[in-house]
Amino acid sequence: MGIIRAVPELERVVGERPLPVMMKSIDRLDPHCLALLAHSPAAVLGYVDAEGRQRAGLVGGTPGFAEAESTSRLRLPAPPSAAPGTGAALLVLVPGWRETLRINGTLAEDGLLVEEAFLHCGKAVIRSNLWGPAAAPGDAVEEGSVLGPAAADFLAAAPFAVIASRDGAGRADVSPKGDPPGAARMIGPATVVLADRPGNRRTDTFHNVVERPEVAVLAVVPGDYRTLEITGKAAVSTDAGLRESMAERNRTPKAVLKVDVETVRLAQNSALRDSGSWDPARHVDPADLPRPSTVWTDHLKLNETAGAAAKLVRDGVDERLLRAGLDEDYRQNL
């Protein structure tokens, strides 16, 4: 099985990270971020626990649960096992909205010190139909070192998963993955795979895994108040048979993330239950949120990357053209 072990090899397969894409991030919380946080009742937190393991959990419960104390500090409920002073990342969910907000930084005693914030494209949410019809809640729970029957059934039904990872320097990231049910696929009791689908083209997870293989995967099923957390060591695979087995919409992924499972925890999640994420009456009207193309336009202009090329990107960005390109991208490149 072909395993990618170095960044140059990775970028030959999945492409380099384009400058305009990387410039969509800023180093603080601006008014757009604050508006999204005010409407969000839940988020996935990638963190490191006291034993040094990469973890992922869903936190929140009510809109505005993550409160900005300043443009560089968020107060939020962290799991008791989380280790302050380590890299952490937040994927902010807004029920009914297709985009997600990603906030990366360092975990403090009572929140997150913000180092990077950016809007993630809506393809994972669209592909998963995350805010669509909800299933009946399940009650089976499970914990162990392999995927037992309940965890396997849950994973097979899950259209949406989030991968938490860190790079060699400990900087954290959480990245959403969406597909028809089975976004993360079990190919053995201790092995899970996830495909690389078209997205925001940052490929953060793959870059991180090449440097540090520890990951956590959190899977959810619309309508279910349980979450499935899988931790283990990951590798980026280019195996042709594995890639072809994960083709969707007649598109074969360029690479697949293969996770060797170490721990499995399927459990009820009170934050998810309290968030009302699967209740259409509590979904946010997109008209009440900033337009995604406006967020990206403003963030590109706020980005402080130096150099002539970066200046050209800032000077050339046009919200109307970006909006039209985004709509076409969502139509053509799911």
Results as ranks from 00 to 15, higher is better:
P189S: 08
D173Q: 05
A83R: 14
E109C: 03
P198R: 08
S145Y: 01
P84R: 06
N200S: 08
E67R: 14
A83I: 00
A134F: 05
V220L: 15
R226C: 10
A216T: 08
E16L: 09
A140D: 15
M186Y: 00
L112A: 08
L37K: 02
V21Y: 03
E211I: 06
F160C: 05
E262I: 00
E51I: 08
L19W: 04
S270H: 02
V209N: 13
P198S: 14
I230T: 03
A108M: 10
P176H: 11
G96S: 04
V210A: 05
Q332K: 13
G96L: 08
V210D: 02
V259S: 11
R55N: 05
F65A: 13
A161Y: 01
Q54H: 12
S245K: 09
D139N: 07
A78G: 10
R212S: 06
V44H: 14
D239H: 11
C121T: 13
L91W: 00
V313F: 00
A150L: 12
L322N: 02
S70R: 01
P159E: 14
E319R: 11
R75S: 13
S293F: 01
V215L: 12
K258S: 05
T231K: 00
A324M: 02
E16A: 15
F160G: 07
A308T: 11
E99Q: 12
F160N: 05
V7T: 11
S70I: 05
M246A: 09
G241W: 01
D274N: 14
E69S: 12
V284I: 06
Q332F: 00
V192I: 15
I126F: 13
T86G: 03
D139A: 12
R12D: 15
L10A: 02
T238V: 15
E214I: 01
E328P: 00
G122Y: 13
A183L: 15
R201T: 14
A6H: 12
H299M: 04
P290V: 08
G111L: 02
A43I: 04
L34E: 09
P63H: 08
R249C: 07
L113T: 00
R249F: 10
V192H: 10
L228Y: 10
R320L: 01
L272Y: 05
S70G: 13
W131A: 12
V44D: 05
L74Q: 02
V317N: 08
S175D: 15
S293K: 04
G178V: 15
L302V: 07
T238N: 11
A195F: 12
G307V: 08
R75A: 13
T203N: 15
D327Y: 12
R197W: 12
V92G: 07
S40F: 03
D30Y: 07
A216F: 15
E11V: 09
H32R: 06
P181C: 05
E116S: 09
A281Q: 14
G232I: 06
E115N: 07
A156P: 06
G15V: 13
A136P: 09
R12L: 13
R251A: 14
D27W: 00
P222C: 14
L58G: 06
A140G: 12
P222T: 14
I230M: 02
